[in-house]
Nucleic acid binder design. Structure first.
Lengths: 190, 190, 190, 190
DNA sequence: GATGAATGAGCCTTCATTCAT
DNA sequence: CATGAATGAAGGCTCATTCAT
């Protein structure tokens, strides 16, 4: 009842919320959103089914939580660099982007699982669009600084290529020669 | 009893099968595979629920039918060209590929809807992998003929870029400046 | 259209009916009445599903046909002997009864499959009761002739024992030492 | 939270499980296993369809539960006597066996409903065989103690006769002169 | 907050039966 | 008579969500 206790409770709640999110992420990613039951999430996160609804309003809301959580984790490295000037910085950014994808395969698998699901499209745009746009802006700035007259299109092309490469890697795993492809990508666009 | 009648019946069956497939494609694409009920497919294709199962063994089989049907429609233009030699042919092939995607948005939306769904992964590979590999081979040959020492990687990079562009276009619709991006893509790779 | 042709047609019909009945008997016996579909019967008897209904009014009616057919086949040997006087005749009758069961396991399996199924109870009594009563009467006469004051009860006991033994044999197959048990049965009752 | 409450909940659950089992037993017995829907069981036991599956994994599992429950009820009287020495004990055991069947007609009707159903054969053997064997062993011991050289066969014959009598009684109800037949059975075998 | 029993709509699928050809 | 496409009711089962405790 003391403030201290309340804080601890608050912290406990956050820990549990994180636990739920991570369990859900794993299951969504492994089996797909639709084929993951709230039950199984409850079991994996060791929270009762009913209690789940004290943390998230429903399955949709939980998904949103998962996506936000994932994005916050992924985006961190990007916040360091908001402007790119040299080829080296460019190359480093691309590489660190794919490092991030490698590190968070689970999350990106979920991403591509959902990207074309109409039901979650709105949610998707809400969560990811700002992130993607920020990315685009950085690249656009770089290409413009290099004299590219249509830097927007180039940035979008690069973004799409990154998307496609990521998708390929996520789908094929180590059968996809990621490093080689990334090298080539950098060469083409630097 | 007469051959004529039998033929007609056979034809009618094929027409109905096509109807079912097209209804399913539309619904799968609009609402996602998981969120489309057999019931709704039955209604849309004006076939009774039970009769659906005279045409397809189950929902999975119907999906396979839809994918094969889609692919057969898509792949046609590709059969014309199996070897690319000049820049012009290259450019034409890329463009015709995106024409195809524009023409069959519905189908490709389904494609990206399914691509990362673990449950249908096996089916997916069965149906699409041969198609994709054929594509890759053509590009690889082109790059090799141009003296590219690592033509395989280049082809894969190109393939991934195409994938990413398609995905972007499918997701954003006319907000995606497809033609411009394609032009740039061709310039980069030709 | 000639009488001859009509006869042939009639004969063909009977052949086909027999075919259907035998297919149904086999399937009912193997998989149980409820788990056998009209479809599978149609396939096995090489008759179209629709045509099945030209021979039998429905699944129930087909079952009745199967039971009557089976009984007519089984009962034949019994018609020889309608009165038993000597121990030898008694013994022979018992033995020939079990021979019959051995020869027609399929049918008797169906019998015991249905015997306690409420849905077909009425049908069952209609078809089998007369047969069983005839049997009972023969035994009753035998026991009476031997001075048994309550020959009815003895006959019923014997009948029940036969029933139980048959059931055991049908269930356990060759794990059931039928011959030995039958010998003992005869000793006890002769 | 208190132990008391948990216990009560546990008890409530058991009561409800029993309710479900008894409803199912009644319906299975009345209409047959195949013709009883989970829905109707839910209605009869005043449990929602969905909740049924919190108690039993499926219809098969429910059947197993019913059979085990029935057997546990039936078998109780038998546990008293595991060795039979005198004629009196023998006679008492036979009689008490048929008392049990009289008392639990419903259950035994289900027994004979299922005994020859191929689909549930495995389950059946799993649940009933141990019970039957125990029975057989007791009789075998008795016959052996009386000097019967082939006590095994005699026990099996007796068992089969009991089976047949029970079946007759279950099928014909009070039209079957059970007591008289049982008396005669005892006379023959004691 | 925490639990898990309870709900009930909805899903995929099967199947006896009908009927146009 | 023969065919098999068509129907639609019914079945077993799942699952997001609620709620009494």
């Amino acid at each position: 009842m003391s403030p201290r206790t309340e804080k601890q409770i608050e912290k406990l709640k956050q820990i549990k919320e994180k636990l739920i999110i991570e369990s859900a992420l794993l299951l969504f990613s492994e089996k797909g959103y639709n084929n993951t039951s709230m039950q199984s999430i409850a079991v994996k996160s060791k929270v009762s089914k009913g209690n789940l609804y004290n943390y998230f309003e429903g399955k949709d809301d939980l998904l949103e939580g998962v996506l936000r959580y994932g994005l916050n984790h992924m985006a961190e490295p990007l916040h360091d660099q908001s402007i790119i000037k040299t080829e080296e910085e460019f190359s480093k950014m691309i590489r660190s982007n794919f490092e991030m994808i490698k590190t968070n395969e689970t999350f990106w698998k979920l991403y591509y699982n959902l990207v074309a699901q109409p039901k979650v499209c709105a949610l998707f745009n809400k969560v990811f669009l700002p992130f993607l746009e920020q990315y685009m802006t950085i690249f656009e700035g770089y290409f413009k600084s290099k004299g590219d007259e249509n830097s927007g299109a180039t940035a979008l092309l690069l973004g799409s290529a990154i998307d496609g490469i990521s998708l390929g890697y996520i789908m094929m795993g180590d059968n996809y020669p990621l490093d080689e492809i990334v090298n080539r990508l950098i060469e083409k666009f630097k």
